[in-house]
């Protein structure tokens, strides 16, 4: 087929593909069928107002909490990914530190309803207005725009799984110690992804994916907004934010 790289067999690629899908399935909550059933279960007007009345600090704590839960699932996804645990510990940490938030943003498209521009948050679907008290309308709007653009691609669960793996296994992250090893794993993932797309007649998808810079920009925007929040609420962060969130972003 011309797809196989000279260093890995078709069987290896097949196993890698199965592994990516299994890792994704085992670490993605809620399941796709459940998300589909609940996609019209939106917050009532009163519930939205109650969220809007919450103090900025409480809303930041809530969002940091939900984001941290999602990141913990991404860590589990990485651990189950064939080859990830064979990388040195420095590189495992580098890849997760740089990529976990990006993977969360990609995964978010699963829990996003593009028809009414809402996302699953604390049990129901919420529009941008629910997050008003965070004080970062532009960031929230950009994240929703990103989810909307991914939803327009009508990604299958398998495609989301591969996209997440490819976002995570990025040999261009600074401070990697074994860059070549990461690049080899990334290469095998790309071969497996292309094979899936060829089988499903979706080769055109690669050209329509958002550029990597868009995810990077969203992550930088998040850190900038966090810094702005900390300037407004000095001392808030150590007290109530999840330790993993502080470790990754503060």
């Amino acid at each position: 087929s011309g797809l196989e790289s000279p260093t890995c067999s078709g069987m290896e690629i097949e196993l890698l593909a199965q592994d990516v899908l299994r890792s994704h399935r085992e670490t993605s909550q809620p399941r796709a069928e459940e998300l589909q059933q609940r996609r019209w279960d939106t917050f009532s007007r009163e519930e939205v107002c109650a969220y809007q009345r919450k103090p900025m600090q409480e809303m930041w704590e809530r969002c940091a909490g939900r984001l941290t839960e999602a990141i913990q699932h991404v860590v589990e996804f990485a651990k189950r990914l064939r080859g990830f645990m064979e990388l040195c510990q420095n590189d495992q940490i580098v890849l997760l530190k740089a990529g976990a938030m990006e993977v969360v943003l990609v995964r978010m498209c699963r829990a996003f309803n593009p028809d009414n521009r809402t996302v699953l948050f604390e049990g129901k679907y919420a529009g941008t207005e629910l997050f008003r008290s965070l004080g970062c309308h532009e960031l929230v709007g950009s994240i929703f725009d990103f989810a909307q653009s991914l939803c327009a691609l009508r990604l299958s669960e398998s495609e989301v799984a591969f996209l997440c793996a490819i976002v995570l296994i990025n040999a261009n992250r600074p401070w990697l110690q074994e860059q070549a090893k990461v690049a080899r794993l990334r290469g095998r993932l790309e071969v497996a992804f292309r094979l899936l797309l060829r089988r499903t007649h979706r080769e055109g998808l690669l050209a329509r994916l958002p550029p990597a810079g868009r995810l990077r920009a969203l992550c930088s925007q998040h850190v900038e907004q966090l810094q702005a929040f900390r300037r407004l609420h000095p001392g808030a962060l150590p007290a109530a934010f999840p330790p993993l969130y502080r470790e990754l972003f503060a």
């Binding site: 860590v75 651990k79 645990m85 510990q89 495992q92 940490i93 997760l96 330790p243 470790e247």
Partner: peptide, 17 residues
């Protein structure tokens, strides 16, 4: 790096699933 990211390091260590 492991020192600065103890929680992440611990999560990675917990059960090589």
């Amino acid at each position: 790096l492991q020192e600065k990211h103890r929680i992440l390091h611990k999560l990675l260590q917990n059960g090589n699933s």
